[in-house]
Amino acid sequence: METTAASRYVRRLLARVRAFDTARPGVWDATVTAMWTVSALVDATGGGWRTTSADATVPTWLVVVLDLALVLPLYWRRRHPMAVLAAMAVAALVSGASGALLQAGYMQLFPVFHIALTRPPRALLSAAALLAPPLAVASIRFPTGYGSTGEGGWDLLVVPYLWAFALASLAGITVRSRREERVQEVERAAAAERDRIAREMHDIIGHNLSVITGLADGGRYAAAKRPEQAAQALDAIATTSRQALAELRRVLRALDPEAVRSPQPGLADLPALIDGVRAAGLPVESEISAAPTLTPGAQLTVYRIVQEALTNALKHAGPDARTTVTLAHAPAATVATITSTTPAPASPAPTAGQGQGIAGMRERAALYDGTLVCGPLPDGTGWRVRLRLPREDSPS
């Protein structure tokens, strides 16, 4: 428990540091540069640099100048990493040629990290080319000895730099890859949310407009002979329009994470949906068994697929069509079947795979490992849509 609490604290602390860095990058860069500048000056004026130098007689003023040249450019390392590395390489070249061999030369790894983080991979070759001359000059001038003991060799000078360069490059590439993965995850989530909203808008607008169209057609014919039925049709149009507006507002409010969302439609709303389709002029018989416990998302999937199937029947089945909706619940799955039939062979309906409606139904079913089968009846007198949605507490 203590380890978990400590890791959470560290994550929160790192998150705050990253947030501060994002909000005030200049302050962070100045702080880092100042910290390393103080360390370099302490090393230069205190004589600590002599423990790793090949020539301890290098003037102190030159050591101070070289240290400053190796750390002050760090302030611009994120904005211009290649230019910073080039400037630092000049100071590192003088350090190697003079025999000072300052440890501040390792500061070159900071711009190397940012090159790997923000530049194309080939830029690392240019960075390696900038680091090579100082190491070559130092190795040629002092091939057999450096440091306070007079021991060592060129390999002990070059190999640590090679390892450090490799680690800095790998760290930059790793952080870059993780950032790109996070960006891709955000983009995928945004695309999925756009698709979800598009499906909701299609289902809401398509269904309600189809119902309103049916009611308007019926009201137009009834206006001449049965004014009371025309008035009922107008009332139904007004009710359907208000429902459509309410659902659209709910979908649009979903774009605001702080908004209070109204409940999504579920299986309990199917009778009202069917009544609305009947009012629009499509005879519908229903057989809906008692529902087991289904998640809100699964219920919304069933509701939207039934809604889309009824909308298609209302638009394509013809005036003499009859539609049956059955909803059955087995231990392993929930099955919804919507069948539209006509007395004579119906006009060709959209084939499976055409239009946004069928594609949207398939996508909704796939989200819950369901299967959707739709197509004409064998005798050509109708169309059937069958959804099988596995129970979440049963094996897939």
Rank of each mutant, 00 (worst) to 15 (best):
A92V: 11
A272H: 11
A19D: 15
R178A: 07
I173D: 00
V335C: 03
T149P: 04
P73A: 04
M35K: 00
L74G: 05
E193I: 03
P25Y: 06
S126R: 13
A86E: 09
R179M: 07
L101T: 07
P263N: 13
F110A: 15
V335W: 00
D195V: 15
A352E: 15
L102N: 05
V58M: 07
P59Q: 15
V284S: 01
E247H: 08
A104Y: 06
G276R: 03
L156S: 12
L93M: 02
L135W: 08
R182S: 13
D21V: 09
R141Y: 09
P73F: 10
A97M: 11
G353L: 14
R364A: 05
G218D: 04
P134I: 12
V32E: 10
V175M: 05
V90I: 15
I288H: 01
G48V: 12
L170N: 00
A40E: 07
V325H: 00
G380C: 11
D320V: 05
R322P: 02
P395Q: 08
L124D: 08
T371D: 12
D393F: 01
T31N: 01
A168E: 02
P265M: 12
T51H: 02
R182V: 11
W163P: 03
V27N: 00
A164C: 02
K225H: 14
G266E: 08
E247C: 00
Y161H: 14
S347W: 10
G96V: 09
P395S: 07
A54C: 07
Y75P: 06
L294S: 10
G276E: 11
H80A: 14
R79Y: 01
W49N: 14
T45H: 02
L135A: 11
R77I: 11
P81V: 13
A222I: 05
L13V: 15
A30S: 13
L13P: 04
V17L: 13
D393T: 15
A365P: 06
R11Y: 05
A69L: 14
L273E: 03
R178P: 04
V65A: 15
M82F: 06
A330N: 11
D55E: 10
W154S: 15
A191I: 11
L252K: 13
M1H: 05
